[in-house]
Design a protein around this nucleic acid. Structure first.
Lengths: 149, 149
DNA sequence: TCATTATATTACCACACGGTAGTAGAATCT
DNA sequence: AGATTCTACTACCGTGTGGTAATATAATGA
């Protein structure tokens, strides 16, 4: 018997949650749209897209690019993030096609590849605002009920 | 010297990446919108929202709800996911305010809380489709260049 | 050539998360 | 009461990922 402890089988996961930033997306995976009747591959593409936007640091970086292209040093200064960290996130954002890379001399400038992203974020922001306000309203009513009891 | 190996300090991360599904969102965090000039708290809310949508299984669940409210068993059948797994994801989706929970007798029905979600997904889907087609186009041109060389 | 600046990469740790098996609780049926 | 069905929860494992320090690379300047 190996000393390494018994190592229970623990069952193979139903899906390998392989997270690889979409480098060159598979053609014909998204295809006909409308969320329902989407192939798992299409859903995977969507999930990867959302995943890229699901970290505060990356959103911070996106924010700094709202006012135009910036080089890495500028992004580091504006966000306060570490250099290696920013570099890593920028690589991910680039591979996902969210930002575009452009070398100018020594510096490398990054910009939002598709302004659609801002529309999307603003949309989500509005929706979240409404949601928050709604919840705040409900809380207020609830506390009023408790007071007048 | 302890036998447990030296245990280098390894430096405290610049941010505690605490992932807690937004239960009742903080009021006044999103506030004035427009992606730039967003507080870190607002960005955190956005990131959490995107994170909920950044997993294939959860997108699958959302897809099944496109055609109307479903109970857990129906969702399990349609998606092929495990029961505990679906339950966990549904809890997360509920806490994030993406889906709404409604008990009917023994069964619990879930539905999309805000149809805005579908618009959003369709939007992203369209954008990804365009991106994919564009890349496919570029690849085609590239291969043509290589052929005629 | 050596130093400096700007960016990328690597190795590493801690930990958050997805999936599973097993169990618990609640409602309904026999 | 016991059995069954539906859903939720807990404990656990493996792994993906964010952050960091250190190093590499490349361009520019002294």
């Amino acid at each position: 018997m190996p000393t390494k402890s018994a190592k229970k089988p623990v069952a193979v996961p139903e899906k390998a949650p392989k997270i690889s930033v979409p480098k060159a997306m598979d053609v014909k995976a998204v295809d006909e749209c409308g969320i329902s009747k989407l192939t798992p591959e299409a859903l995977s593409l969507m999930a990867d897209f959302f995943k890229v936007l699901s970290e505060v640091s990356r959103l911070q970086i996106v924010c700094t690019l709202k006012t135009g292209a910036k080089n890495v040093t500028e992004i580091i200064e504006e966000t306060g993030l570490g250099q290696a960290n920013v570099s890593k996130h920028l690589k991910m954002l680039t591979q996902a096609g969210v930002v575009a890379r452009e070398q100018r001399g020594v510096c490398v400038y990054y910009r939002i590849a598709n302004p659609f992203l801002f529309e999307l974020c603003d949309l989500v922001c509005d929706a979240l605002t409404m949601q928050v306000e709604q919840q705040s309203q409900q809380l207020k009513q609830l506390s009023q009920l408790r007071q007048s009891r």
